[in-house]
Amino acid sequence: MTDNDNTTNSSLRPRQTKMVGNNKTTNGSPPRSTTSSSSSSAASPLAMRTSPFLPTPLETLALAAYPALLAFGTLFSVLSPQTRGAPYDAGAQSHNPATAPSYFARKDNVFNVLFVKRGWAWISISFLAFVLTHPALNNQISGNIRKVRAATRWVLVTAWWALVTQWCFGPPLIDRGFRFTGGRCEVAAEAIEEGIADKADAFTAAACRASGGRWSGGHDVSGHVFLLVLGSYFLVQEVGWVACRAGRLFGPAREERCVVMGDGAVKGAGVEADKSGAATDESELGVGGKFALVVVALCWWMLLMTAIYFHTWFEKFTGLLVAAMAIYPVYILPRWVPALRAFIGMPGI
């Protein structure tokens, strides 16, 4: 029995050694180093890259907030008996202050008068404050280049705002669209009788109001919706991506943008940030960044109030659509056009 036991034990030893030696094969599990490599690969930025031709998931979420606000406001205006029953002057795009269903339904409310009516000034001032105070835009290596590119993006977006609402080689695009769809200026009879207006038709909304008349008959794109969407999304892009790359929002690895390089290769946008020497460790938004976020919040609130109390659903939709027309060329197109990207850059890069 002793000999048998020894024989048995000795015969088992090689088997045990073989099993231990082949453990990685027998169990079907990869070696520890391979597992670690796979995990790090799965967590790498490669797994989070998206198409350079489309908005990232974060951008899509931010963009979806605008039609969601407009849809909610429009639905609320239809379902609320107080709002639905309040008299509304479609020509003047206003509720009568005496019968307005809410303080925010009055065009003379302080937020409309002091904020929305001067909306682009607030947006521009908050953007300037952010650019001048945030350390990511003021580092010694790439600060001046990034400031120039940020200013270029502001010029492009501001130019679109001016063309649509202020002047486009004559009347702005909103007024041209109103006239093109059959609209005209109806001069108030009282104004003519008092001699403060003539009978000539006016070609802009401002001139029509100055002559004592009112727009009538055409499609009036919502200028409030256009301004609030374009301005707030501009700030969201400019402040948001800098904060994301600094690790302030969603962590430093949440870089989802991709760019097409000069040789056609698709790489993460962080590659260009590294080349430019852009700092990625400034974690504070700063006074300018916080100011910009307050302006964004006010824009969203007033957009909701506009959706509830002013304009038809189609006028609000076209205001959103016209604002969106500037977003893709300024913030998505440069990702797959290297020459354009070299000129206007990308926020956070």
Rank of each mutant, 00 (worst) to 15 (best):
F180A: 11
T181V: 10
G182V: 14
G182R: 02
G183Q: 07
R184F: 14
R184W: 15
C185R: 00
V187G: 05
A188R: 04
A189V: 12
A189Q: 08
A189C: 00
A191E: 12
A191L: 05
A191V: 09
I192N: 06
E194V: 11
E194M: 15
E194K: 02
G195C: 10
I196D: 09
A197M: 06
A197W: 01
A200V: 15
D201W: 05
A202D: 04
F203S: 07
F203A: 03
F203D: 01
T204E: 04
A205G: 10
A206C: 01
A206D: 10
A206S: 14
A206H: 07
A207V: 11
C208D: 12
C208W: 03
A210N: 06
A210R: 07
G213F: 14
G213L: 05
G213V: 12
S216L: 13
S216V: 14
G217V: 09
G217S: 04
G217A: 06
H219C: 03
H219F: 14
D220N: 03
D220I: 10
D220W: 09
V221D: 01
V221L: 04
S222K: 02
S222E: 01
G223I: 09
H224E: 03
V225T: 14
V225Q: 00
V225G: 14
F226A: 05
L227G: 06
L228M: 06
V229H: 05
V229T: 15
V229E: 05
L230E: 08
G231C: 10
G231V: 03
Y233P: 10
Y233G: 05
F234L: 10
L235Y: 09
V236N: 05
V236H: 02
V236Q: 03
E238K: 00
E238R: 04
E238P: 07
G240Y: 09
V242G: 09
C244M: 13
R245S: 04
R245E: 08
A246T: 08
A246F: 14
G247Y: 02
R248E: 03
L249W: 15
F250N: 08
F250P: 07
F250D: 10
A253T: 12
E255N: 07
E255R: 02
E256T: 13
E256R: 01
E256W: 01
E256K: 04
R257L: 12
V260L: 03
M261Q: 15
M261G: 12
G262P: 11
G262S: 06
G262E: 13
G262C: 06
G264N: 02
V266A: 08
V266N: 00
G268S: 11
G268R: 01
A269S: 11
G270F: 09
G270L: 10
